[in-house]
Amino acid sequence: MKGIQIQGVEKSFSKRKILQELDFTFEAHKIYGLLGRNGAGKSTLLNIITDRIFATSGQVIVDGEVAKNNDAALSKIYLSSEMNAYPASIRLEKIFKMTELFYGDFDYTLANNLAKQFDLDLQQKFGKLSTGYRNIFKFIVALGVPAEYIFLDEPTLGLDANHRDLLYQSLSTSYIERPRTFVIATHLIGEVASLLERVVVIDQGQVIINGDLEDVLEQSYLISGPEKEVSEYTKNLNVIGKERLGKISSYYVYGKLDDECFLPDVVTIEHLDLQQLFIHLTNPRKEQ
């Protein structure tokens, strides 16, 4: 079976549980958004998938094979993150060659092309790059490897708006030309949302959402109106957040609405975008 299956993966550091029994699949040939607040466990999960750190329990299956200590399976996965730093004195071109040694056939045409577009001189040494260009370079390497599963951990860190735009465009072009799985972990939810087909939200070490972006947004609502009517209408719904401005209350709801319930005409219903949904889902609930 194609895809990456996360089976009962748990991770604890000393006594603290970072990931709690994760069970889900990254399906092949789709672009995923992996969203979570700082410390939610995203990077830990990515490092477990790529066998950089061990899970306390559970396993990762890549196209039907256990990934742990399995070079064939691991060469199908590429993780671009803060952790892959290269020696400062090494030239960028050389890094392409090093990458090819492990992953095989590197796409030099694409990489050179992207370097030109981003105005990146490949004769430079890695240590000379600014934070932004270091991330641009890592992104270029990630697109050049022949791996089937590409994980990008905060690929846009330190990039200006123009370069971020170019990065999203390069990603979608490369995906169209060679469909493969991309998993993008990012905090810039609004910018990346249109690129995504599926979305996984991790909160406090647990997957709280895993679905088609469209289906997820379909059941995300903002219900506003006078407090009494709004609280009455939402009483059996999954309310994830509330806001109040003067006499108007806004309730954020995730899940199905109650079709039987009467909707007073002073109450309005709108859909949320992904960022609004994320903020309210991952805010610690304050009981009022």
Partner: peptide
């Protein structure tokens, strides 16, 4: 589909 997807970075499936 490709042109629209590329220009607006919208997922091709969308």
């Amino acid at each position: 589909t490709t042109e629209i997807s590329r220009n607006y970075h919208i997922n091709p499936a969308t």
